[in-house]
């Protein structure tokens, strides 16, 4: 009975994971489709046309590059600003802490449609021209919080004694940061940047409100959905997904290898030592 129950939980867990990937599989499979008609929603015939001619449909690659550009700029600015806030939250005492926490938390819980609408209301009232700048402003605004949360978690997980040890070993504040704090937090910052980029690259709702005439990749997809999404879009999205998976899994494997190396029994190491 107990055996069945334990297996049952594992089976359910795997099924849920499979469920999470079903739509992605559909997207990937349909990237090899030659649709019958303009809507690429049901399987017709195998073809690699989309993969060999990625930019074959006007506007696809252009919007893709716009999204990459916006994503990169957003990631750089938001990662810097968010990391600074995370350090302040963990390492410094200041007035207005709960207000600060709230102002960081709320963007993560506000529906995108409300954020998009309110920001548009601001730009309209200021008669600020909509375009790539307004999209970037918006993206930085909603990514900062996620960066703060990610970097903060890493910082909090760091043993404060490591920094004390650095100070004890003749490292001043700068040297402590450069040789100890930063190298230890860097993986967290890199992870936060990756998250920031994926949030920006994939954002549709807020961008749509504040884009003006600029067409990002998601906005292109949205527009295309009415008249049929080109197969190239599926191919590009599959590519992005695979690239992200490669990055994430590589880091996972590297850290797993590292942990694996530690699993050598300590006695084996002791034995390698000449003892007095």
């Amino acid at each position: 009975m107990r055996w069945i129950r334990q297996r049952l939980l594992g089976v359910i867990a795997v099924l849920v994971l499979v469920y999470l990937f079903i739509p992605i599989a559909v997207v990937a499979v349909l990237s090899f489709n030659k649709p019958d008609g303009k809507y690429n929603i049901s399987w017709n015939q195998f073809s690699i046309d989309a993969w060999t001619n990625l930019c074959g449909v006007p506007g696809v690659c252009g919007s893709f590059m716009v999204s990459i550009r916006i994503g990169v700029i957003t990631t750089i600015v938001a990662t810097i600003l968010g990391t600074m806030i995370a350090f302040a939250l963990v390492r410094y005492r200041f007035r207005g802490r709960s207000t600060t926490n709230l102002l960081i938390f709320l963007p993560m819980t506000t529906p995108e449609v409300v954020m998009g609408a309110s920001l548009l209301a601001l730009f309209l009232n200021l008669r600020f021209p909509l375009g790539e700048t307004t999209i970037i402003i918006a993206h930085i605004m909603f990514t900062i919080s996620f960066i703060v949360v990610t970097v903060k978690a890493r910082l909090q997980g760091m043993d404060p004694r490591l920094e004390e040890a650095a100070r004890d070993l003749y490292a001043g504040p700068r040297a402590t940061f450069r040789y100890v704090t930063f190298p230890l937090v860097a993986p967290g910052i890199a992870g936060a940047a990756l998250l920031g980029f994926s949030l920006s690259f994939d954002d549709f709702i807020i961008s749509f409100f504040n884009a003006g005439t600029v067409v990002t990749f998601p906005i292109y997809i949205w527009g295309a959905a009415q008249r049929g999404i080109p197969v190239q879009v599926n191919a590009l999205a599959t590519m992005v997904f695979l690239a992200a998976m490669v990055i994430v899994l590589t880091t996972q494997v590297v850290s797993y290898r590292r942990r694996k190396a530690l699993q050598l029994p300590p006695q084996a190491l002791e034995a390698a030592l000449p003892r007095s």
């Binding site: 992605i24 997809i221 999404i229 599959t238 992005v240 992200a244």
Partner: peptide, 10 residues
């Protein structure tokens, strides 16, 4: 991982 594939396309 699924978040790395386009929300709209999914």
């Amino acid at each position: 991982a699924p978040s790395f594939a386009s929300f709209l396309l999914r």
